[in-house]
Amino acid sequence: MKIKLGTYRLFVVGLIMGLLAALIQAYTFDIQPPEGFGLAFVGHPNNFFNWIVNNIPWVNNWVSFPLHEAFLIYPPLTILGVFIGSSIAGARSKELKLRPGPVRNRFTAILLGFLVINFGLLWDCDIRTALLVGYGSVLGIIALISIAAGVIAATVYLRSRARKGAM
């Protein structure tokens, strides 16, 4: 049986993500503090990367990166899971192949990744922000408004550049 969700497909995916994030926070018992940390695509990659760095014998002699208390013994494997899941989905839909984009210039892409994580680590990602709004956090609402303001500012900038280019 195939359920047709139409334009609400993404809403359902978001709903499932929210429920899963709440579930792993509530019942794995060691993914917090902080609250609402079941899914995070800035915080989890940061802890995953730092855990690896801290556990490489010849590296951890001279460097040690901070970890959340919850991830001192085991790292979060969310990112690894996303890679596996996306690769399976890509292979099934025949989209798994090396191709250019979305950002064509490789140095711009590297710079954007660098900037996003450095701003992102001041707070966290959009998905965790949405989770915190669901958690009833006022700071989460403020952060979500800030993310929206950043998106709108970038869109306005891109529009004005496109207009100048058209003239």
Binding site: F41, F119, G120, G150
Partner: peptide
């Protein structure tokens, strides 16, 4: 600051970290 920067540069990157 973090939220604004993340939103701003994610538009140029054409997607959020996820």
């Amino acid at each position: 600051l973090g939220g604004f920067g993340l939103g701003f540069f994610s538009v140029f990157a054409e997607g959020c970290p996820f």
